[in-house]
Design a protein around this nucleic acid. Structure first.
Lengths: 243, 243, 243, 243
DNA sequence: AATGAATGAGGCTTCATTCAT
DNA sequence: TATGAATGAAGCCTCATTCAT
């Protein structure tokens, strides 16, 4: 299933001359030029996540990136292409990072899961890239390309990675023999949800709040406790009952 | 904090004089008029969820409801008011239902949680109303009214309800002394996520799929196992490892 | 030059049955029905004058007349026909009145002019019919019919009437041998202007104001003084210089 | 009473940075940009006067100015703002001109009045700006801003100017001790009326006509004769009785 | 005769995209 | 490259008019 969003091999902006010129030192306006695509992607990410794709004007993106309307179209042929670039750009790296993290790890399946989820998701949660989840959720139905890209480039590998760890845990007698797919979902879905939340309700001025990083930690503990054969009794209990 | 989206007292469509006259038989165009708001809300919900608010044209909503463009504006003064009505209308009832379900229940906290979550969320998940989560996630930043309404009319009561059950379970020695708020989130967030999923990636034609109802059941078991002092060993284990 | 706006012979509303039925006493709902056209014309006049024809909604007219939107169309086939009816209805009578006033008068040309202008214009100025001048000024360019009607049914007769009086005054050696047409204009145009004013700036809440009736009196005196061979020295001087 | 329609300081079109850069030669599309506001104002004046504000479509204005619909909105944020700009732009200069004319004059009050009224009003009458009177009369009730602007920026100064001349004439024994305000109105109102007329009935193809410039001359003579202590006997008598 | 629900053409305004400079 | 003026398709909304009751 070929991914449609030009996965890792650079991005889809028009001139690829940046790849050609690679002098050790660039004059400053050159560096500006090379930075443009990234600046545009960052601006677009922030705005698309905040207001939605359809409700964001191309000119706003350009303005936030510090360039004029016309310049945007020098780098991306249309608003839609910009959207796809935003999504693929912000996901491709993260996945690889996660896999690397897992590969280099020694220890129990539980410890590995804890490490990956708390470390990796925690970082993701705090980065602007967390917003792409909202973007994907919001826009897949309008742009089917996104669905294929996201399923094959993000969900599949991530699920595979975590599924393997859970399977290893079960095989080692560390975890109970649960349904692996569902267990992985139980671990991941709240994480995604938290990222979504940060860029929707969580960004609104309200009395009510939700601490994402703290929740991540608690949740991982809770689910792992449900998963483990010998739960670390009390591990999830910290400040005890609240409110 | 007064909710801004006309919470329960019916909907916000314009004339309601029809309530006053109660002759045994209504002329047919009267009957149409009474049904219109609901038809429009249903159409709007489906389209807003599928394509997003900004990307849905008012005329599409009207067409799906079987009326003309102008008629829509006979019932809702603007597309934005229609959005608010869609959200408040589809959430107000559900919350009450859940509370009633909880109130009429006898049994352990764990059983109650299982009942509510699997029963109530399962139904919600299968109903079109599940889409409002996507709508809220997507549009809160653009329409701050929604934030206040959702926080006060949905999150607060739901959280209170589940929190009370968890607290009762802890007090009864049934649950470990976990952080209640986080536990509630661990239970709820994946549910919300599943609803979101159904109306985004889940609606796309892909190889990869996710069975919502089955996941709900598994997830509740898993978390409750993590929660319980004496986990029902093996409760979450059903078809064992997959793939 | 046939007038196009159905000058005096009744109005242009659709059913003319009202002319047929003329019993000495009508049941009350009948009287309502017969009164409708007048009520609609009055409402339309007020609104067209206040907001302009294009900016007035048919439904507003109906509402002000105390009927529903549909009823308006029972009496006038379109908004445009309503406009024409408003204009012709409100001008036809006034002109005849003026002519009668002039015919029944005995005395000098100057006295007659004074009488007609102060009396007749004063009354017109205070009646809602004064608004039609604004209406005509505003809408002639859009509805050429109005031009012909107004020129032949209003301007011509009025001008003829006053012109004759002035001519008589000149012949009698009472007035100087001025250009008659211009003299008539000098007398009439400020009157029209005052009527216009009452329904435009004069209706706005401002510090600055202009007393129409008083102005009319002063103006007639002033112009007659300019007209007369032996001006009534000091006639126009009343409270002397102001401000 | 602060005027609301951006009185003299240029017009209300959006960017004005062009004033800063003053290179000897401008690129052609720059030159277009500078000319646009005036072209749009001219087009708008003509159309608003001819058809009324509400009955004129924004696209018509754009087309008459030789640009597309969208371009209009590059210069004026709404049709209503365009209206206000049209009014303020076309009145601000004229008033100043009149004051200058008066200031630089030597001679009797009567001669000065004659000069100003015949010269200045004659020019105004022949210019497109005469149409703004129709516009103001027509639209004040719908746009209250206009009332304040017009009262403070047009009526007040003009009235003051003429009132001073009349007062001077009275003080010098040249004029009779008439009511100054009314005298000024007697002089001005017919002028305004003539401007109105030119753009309403006067623009319609009719048998009946009215020569504005000639009327102005006659009217000024007539009223001045009524005003003067020793009227220039026969001054107003030229071609004698007509018709 | 009267109502008011329904319609859809039409107007205002926005904004993605182009292109001359 | 970069700009920003210009375009025009498209969307929101209004309102004159129709018509079933």
């Amino acid at each position: 299933m070929a991914p449609v969003l030009t996965p890792e091999p650079a991005s889809s902006y028009i001139t690829d001359r940046s790849v050609i010129n690679m002098p050790p030192v660039e004059p400053s306006h050159r560096r500006r030029k090379q930075a443009r695509p990234q600046e545009l992607l960052d601006a677009a990410l922030a705005l698309f996540v905040e207001k939605g794709f359809a409700a964001t004007r191309a000119e706003e993106v350009a303005a936030r990136a510090g360039v004029s309307k016309g310049t945007l179209y020098l780098y991306y042929p249309s608003k839609e292409e910009l959207l796809k670039a935003v999504i693929s750009h912000n996901l491709s790296d993260r996945i690889a990072e996660g896999a690397a993290l897992a590969a280099g790890f020694e220890g129990s399946a539980g410890a590995l899961l804890r490490g990956i989820l708390i470390e990796w998701w925690g970082n993701l949660y705090d980065s602007p890239a967390a917003g792409v989840f909202k973007l994907v959720i919001t826009e897949v139905r309008n742009f089917p390309d996104i669905a294929h890209y996201y399923a094959s480039q993000v969900i599949e590998p991530a699920h595979q990675l975590l599924g393997d760890i859970v399977r290893r845990g079960i095989a080692a007698g560390e975890f109970r023999a649960v349904d692996v797919d569902n267990a992985v979902h139980s671990l991941i879905l709240p994480m995604v949800m938290i990222c979504l939340h940060r860029h929707s309700l969580g960004a609104c001025p309200l009395d009510w709040h939700l601490d994402g990083r703290q929740f991540i930690a608690q949740h991982v503990h809770l689910v792992l406790d449900g998963l483990c054969v010998h739960p670390l009794a009390g591990a999830a209990a910290s400040p005890a009952a609240s409110r």
